[in-house]
Simulated assay, not measured.
Amino acid sequence: MEGTFLVIGAAGGIGQQVVETALSQGWRVIAVLRTPAKLSLTHPLLTVVKGDVLQPATYETYLTESTVVLSAIGITRGVFRDEATTLYSEGARQILGAMQRRGARRAYFISASAVEISPVLPAFVRWVAKHIVQKLLRQMYADLRIMEGLVKESGLDWTIVRPPRLTDKKLTGKYRYAVNSFLRNALSISRADVAHFMVHHASDRGTYQGVVELGY
């Protein structure tokens, strides 16, 4: 047995992939979601908890010093329905506070590659990211930047993951990543491979307090 993953937002695309990957690697998994019925998976090492990221009392008791926390929360409004939100920043604030109270240190937070335009992407991709993606998702990205700031100031063993375009393709286990630097031509990655990275680097100190870009 490897340890415990506590996944907040376990019914989402990345969250569910992390649950499945961690279980396959012998981790105990605490899946936290507002609607437990959305996660149909059953497993001897899986505990499903009805909880809300903004209400830490619903999941805080499951945190220990050896827990790896993943915030996989997200808003599924679509690119043409960008609205003001504080879910990412306030969610991070609540998670970090709960971790500090319980002595947990290791955490992953999912952000987005276009939060900061990579100078090593092709010129056309940079233009699209700056003039289309960042404008369409302006308010969501603003909250993600606040979230990243809170995480970086926490002093915990955090990793911020900034994936590019996400797909539902199968796991390959073959991808590139860069820590605190930009990854050249990182244009897409599957949710399964993002999950693979996080589970297999949970104790990798080289990723602690690092912003990670992923891609093929």
Score class of each variant (00 low, 15 high):
residue 58 T to N: 07
residue 62 Y to A: 03
residue 58 T to D: 09
residue 77 R to T: 13
residue 42 T to S: 15
residue 63 L to R: 05
residue 42 T to K: 15
residue 80 F to C: 00
residue 65 E to T: 14
residue 55 Q to Y: 00
residue 80 F to L: 15
residue 69 V to M: 10
residue 46 L to T: 06
residue 70 L to Y: 09
residue 40 S to T: 10
residue 47 T to M: 08
residue 47 T to G: 08
residue 55 Q to G: 10
residue 77 R to K: 13
residue 41 L to C: 03
residue 63 L to K: 02
residue 38 K to G: 00
residue 78 G to M: 10
residue 70 L to H: 06
residue 43 H to I: 06
residue 72 A to T: 05
residue 71 S to F: 13
residue 58 T to V: 01
residue 40 S to H: 09
residue 69 V to C: 05
residue 38 K to D: 08
residue 58 T to I: 02
residue 52 D to S: 12
residue 80 F to V: 07
residue 52 D to F: 08
residue 57 A to D: 14
residue 41 L to K: 13
residue 60 E to H: 03
residue 72 A to K: 01
residue 39 L to V: 01
residue 45 L to E: 11
residue 66 S to L: 12
residue 65 E to L: 11
residue 80 F to E: 13
residue 79 V to D: 14
residue 49 V to H: 02
residue 63 L to S: 04
residue 42 T to N: 14
residue 41 L to E: 14
residue 40 S to N: 12
residue 73 I to R: 00
residue 37 A to N: 11
residue 46 L to K: 01
residue 58 T to P: 07
residue 69 V to S: 05
residue 67 T to L: 12
residue 77 R to P: 00
residue 80 F to Y: 15
residue 35 T to Y: 10
residue 79 V to T: 13
residue 37 A to Y: 11
residue 48 V to S: 01
residue 70 L to I: 09
residue 56 P to I: 01
residue 72 A to L: 00
residue 68 V to T: 08
residue 65 E to K: 15
residue 54 L to A: 05
residue 36 P to H: 03
residue 37 A to T: 12
residue 60 E to Q: 13
residue 57 A to H: 12
residue 72 A to F: 04
residue 62 Y to R: 05
residue 54 L to H: 06
residue 60 E to M: 03
residue 80 F to S: 12
